[in-house]
Amino acid sequence: MTAPRKIFDLERDGDALIAVPLRNLGSLAEEELQAELPELLQALHQPDARHLVLDFSRISYFGSSMLEAVRRLARRAHEHGGRTALCGLSPVAREILEIARFDTLWPLCETREEALAAVRKG
């Protein structure tokens, strides 16, 4: 039996956790997403990983389940004194975030470097 594909790849850059969604995700994979979220939330619980960068460069779109995941993860980062930034967005992905007005909550950056600079700028 094939193991279920991971939805997120996790990387570290100093005090920032970088979560990279690996596949296009509508609400269809919501249960898988919810099953994987605790691991990400736990990773943000570590004292040396304060900030969160969500890098969407590997996918072109997502649905409301990903919006909810972004909200939960950003809230956890905030609880631990960290900041959140999003980057690598396709036009449709950016549109989805703007429709939900998430662009008013967290910066939407072009590149990962810009997102890392944004969370560290304070």
Binding site: G26, S60, F62, S64, P91, V92
Partner: peptide, 15 residues
């Protein structure tokens, strides 16, 4: 691009 938008909308309706 429009097909992706329709797909997202349809997924939301089905869920």
């Amino acid at each position: 691009t429009e097909r992706i938008r329709v797909g997202v909308a349809l997924e939301e309706a089905l869920v």
